[in-house]
Structures are given as C-alpha cells and as structure tokens.
Simulated scan of single mutants.
Amino acid sequence: MRVPVKKRSKSRSGNSSLKRTLIEAARAAAHTKNTYLSAKYRRIAARRGGNRAALALAHTILIITYNIIKNKIPYQDLGPDYFNKLNESAIVKRSTKFLNSLGYKVVKE
C-alpha cells in the first residue's frame, strides 16, 4: 500500500505586506470572468480550498509580475480554456468513458 505524501500546510515567512496585497489581488482576480487566473483559482479551489487557492494564485501573480518587469513585455492572458487545451485528449477520453457508462454510444470523428 502506498502512503500519500502530505503537502506543506504552512507558507514560508516573508514580507507580510506584500503577501497581504498579493492575496487581495488574487481574490479580486478570482472573481473576474473568462481569464486564466480565474480558471486557475477554480481548479485549485476545487481540490484544496479557497484560502490555499488564493495563496497559490497570489504566487502566480507574483511570478507573472516578475517576468513582466524582467523581460519588459506586456501581460498576455492565456485564456480561460488554457487548461482544457493542455489536456484535450484526456478530457475527450474521460468524457467518452463517462457517457459510455451512462449507456450512450459515442463515436469519435
């Protein structure tokens, strides 16, 4: 039997003002519609909860901001369907299997 690895439950210490600001920005970004950041928030929140998803999104915003400043390029949103495009074949396979289990016959074209 394989024992699951427990993920860290505490974030590392750092600039508390920056952390508060980034989490506030992350919560605002999570409420936007049809953006990469809102899609990422929903994916993480479904698995780990809203607070951890906000912290993860704050980290993503920090990384994006760093790359914008470092490379001097404008931000380009990847879009809300970025994760669906990333695993398109897995989504098709999972959906086909689900519909077959309900009794439907699915034919791929």
Rank of each mutant, 00 (worst) to 15 (best):
K33L: 04
T60M: 07
A28C: 01
T32M: 12
L99W: 10
R12D: 09
E88V: 12
D81M: 11
G14D: 09
R2E: 07
R43L: 13
K93Y: 00
V3K: 15
T35P: 01
T60G: 00
A90S: 10
Y104G: 05
R52C: 02
G14N: 10
G49K: 10
A90W: 08
P4D: 02
R12G: 04
M1N: 04
I91V: 14
R48T: 04
L78R: 08
I69F: 05
S17E: 15
E24R: 14
A26Y: 05
Y75Q: 07
L62Y: 04
V92A: 09
Y41R: 02
S11H: 09
S11I: 11
I44V: 13
L62F: 07
N67M: 13
E24T: 14
A26M: 05
I44E: 06
S95G: 01
I23P: 02
H31E: 12
N100W: 03
R48D: 07
D77W: 06
R27K: 15
S17F: 11
R27G: 00
A26T: 07
K33D: 06
V92S: 04
A58N: 06
Y66P: 03
A90H: 07
S17H: 12
G79H: 00
I61Q: 01
K70P: 01
I64V: 03
I73A: 08
G79Y: 00
S9Y: 12
N87W: 09
M1Y: 04
A25D: 07
S17T: 11
D77Q: 06
